[in-house]
Design a protein around this nucleic acid. Structure first.
Ligand SMILES: [Mn+2]
Ligand SMILES: [Mn+2]
Ligand SMILES: [Zn+2]
Ligand SMILES: [Zn+2]
Lengths: 177, 177
DNA sequence: TATACACTGAGAACAAGTCTCAATCCAACT
DNA sequence: AGTTGGATTGAGACTTGTTCTCAGTGTATA
């Protein structure tokens, strides 16, 4: 049985753990069972995980340890921290371990999905980024594209109702009491 | 003297305040001097402001009031809250008041700049978004593109040094004591 | 002027994320 | 096999951006 490790699943077999171990060694860190559990979670999720997601799927891991592991894995270049629209961080494997991808953010249920861009689009993206370097003196070395909308599930729920209104989960601020 | 209101400066003259007042009225809210001051700040900044930016430029406004005004203005559709890479929110005028734009995020000093995309790129973006709708059942109604890199100022500072290392402000997690 | 709400400021409350510290593990030696 | 020094871990205190509470003030409208 093969397990999907994210979009594209670049690293076949178990080279993933070897690669992670090597990067940790570079940072004088050990690849312990807690860290391995986290990497497995992130690899099998295929989309960025919140600390809540992690706590659900690894109930025995203390939150302080999870946070610290994530920091260490970031510093080793294994994990990337992404700021979602709701102000909470999500965590995913670094793109050079999985593959460059974008995010579909459902503004109703808050779920974040990975999607791999078409080569044509990335080409347009690159020429656009090149044009930015010239005009403003800004030198880009990465980009992040989030597509906001309704996922398939929430879409069905919405069209099932007469009124187009569904409770939104993500961008709505707190409001007045 | 004309004041830039953001990229493109869609609303000329003082129709901005009229528009804001109208949207607040729709939400049964008044356009008071504190709220007007905030709208002026956001309009003149031309890039998303942090609560710290706001406190600096409007020292007499209490933070609790600033936050509450921002919530009210969001609910009225005047302000948009953007989650920056450092985990803190920034605030800017809604895109249908200014113009659709993207963000240049400097990963060294944390500053966020607005940039208006070329029509060619937005066209590529639209066809890309259309392709997403088909495949996964996800229906997109908005997108957010953040370009990460080094702003002109930090770029100069970086090339002035022999080593390429500058202290990063944004994505670097806290580290171990 | 009276009345009913909306608005405001001060500060308490909340919670995601970070830090501290004592205990434990483990790779590298003898 | 035992020692040892540094890395790792769990529990909980702490920090701080953001939200909530509440009493007092402003302001439309009649
Ligand atoms: Mn891309
Ligand atoms: Mn765009
Ligand atoms: Zn959804
Ligand atoms: Zn900069």
């Amino acid at each position: 049985m093969t397990v999907s490790r994210g979009p594209g699943d670049k690293t076949g077999g178990d080279s993933l753990h070897g690669l992670v171990e090597e990067r940790l060694r570079q940072a004088a860190q050990r690849y312990t069972s807690g860290r391995r559990a986290l990497v497995d979670l992130l690899a099998q999720a295929g989309h960025p995980l919140s600390i809540e997601d992690i706590a659900e799927q690894a109930p025995r891991m203390p939150r302080s340890s999870a946070y610290r592991h994530l920091v260490d894995l970031q510093q080793a270049g294994v994990v990337r921290r992404v700021a979602a629209n709701d102000g909470y961080f999500r965590f995913e494997l670094a793109e050079d371990i999985t593959e460059h991808h974008h995010h579909l953010v459902c503004t109703y249920c808050g779920q974040v999905l990975d999607v791999t861009p078409t080569p044509a689009f990335e080409q347009a993206m690159n020429s656009y980024l090149a044009s930015l370097t010239g005009s403003s003196g800004f030198v880009s070395d990465d980009h992040r594209l989030d597509v906001l909308g309704a996922c398939a599930t929430c879409n069905r729920a919405r069209s099932a109702r007469r009124d187009q209104a569904l409770p939104r989960a993500t961008p709505q601020p707190a409001g007045r009491p």
